[in-house]
Design a protein around this nucleic acid. Structure first.
Lengths: 140, 140
DNA sequence: TCTCATTGTAAATAATGGTATTACAATGAG
DNA sequence: CTCATTGTAATACCATTATTTACAATGAGA
């Protein structure tokens, strides 16, 4: 069980937009060739990032730009842009209400697992695009 | 995107075994009626918990028992018993090696996301079965 | 205004994985 | 030996992800 590759793809898109800003026009086809994935998936993902206010996309002429500085974009925003806001775990819908365990399981696990997810999001909030870009520069 | 209900089901199974120990024989059918799920899923999950050393199952005669005290069983063990040990996110396999972003994306995200997963596991390690059982008692 | 590369989006398809269910041999206490 | 139960394989169904084709809408530049 693992998350889909939407978030990693979104991160790669944003890094490419930042890195090639002013050098290449970052069209969906251009971005697709970095990720090695179908351009339609890039366009859909860009749509989600646009809806989240992280990028501007030039319809018609093509290309995308960040709306903020890389230091102000965190993986938390990216994650929330491309993943649904739902519980980390699926808890069985209809446990037996006559069983003391069954009738309490949602309450028991719900809050504790929500907390785990919040921790995960705050971990993501500590990772910025700028940090990743720096890391790339260093390795060149 | 969310984890399957395997972990919540496993937790419910373990709680029932602990709670009804000595009172009812905790067969797969009995446990299935608490979770309201097919008994085969219970048997498969019990098999995973047994492989992880958390329970003993009496083949033939039926019923399951914990091998440790509830205070010594954490959700981390349960999670690892029923979920595969894999990365939290799926990163695209063949990014473009000619792109500075593409050829670094695995290195960039790999270690950072592993850390996030480790944090998640250590959150799970802080939740014990005993704590959940206490919580049930209080609400009775 | 026309052109044309590009975006936005729908639709069809394939692949994957989780969940549900049936079936039955193996188990082991009584 | 009996019988309820476990262990496990096989199958089917469904939801979601990922892939791909197709095409109307966009909008800068000629």
């Amino acid at each position: 069980m693992q998350f889909s590759f939407r978030m990693p793809v979104a991160v790669q898109i944003l890094l490419c937009i930042a890195k090639f800003d002013g050098v290449f026009k970052t069209t969906s086809t251009f971005l697709a060739s970095s990720v090695n994935i179908n351009p339609v998936i890039i366009r859909n993902t860009l749509g989600q990032l646009k809806a989240a206010g992280l990028v501007k996309v030039a319809a018609g002429v093509g290309g995308a730009k960040l709306t903020k500085e890389p230091k102000d974009i965190t993986l938390k925003e990216v994650f929330q842009a491309v993943e649904e806001d739902e519980d980390l775990f699926h808890i069985q819908d209809n446990p037996n209400p006559q069983c003391p365990v069954g009738r309490n399981i949602h309450r028991l696990l719900g809050s504790r697992l929500s907390l785990v997810k919040e921790h995960m999001l705050s971990d993501f909030a500590d990772i910025t695009l700028a940090e990743l870009l720096d890391d790339i520069e260093k390795s060149e």
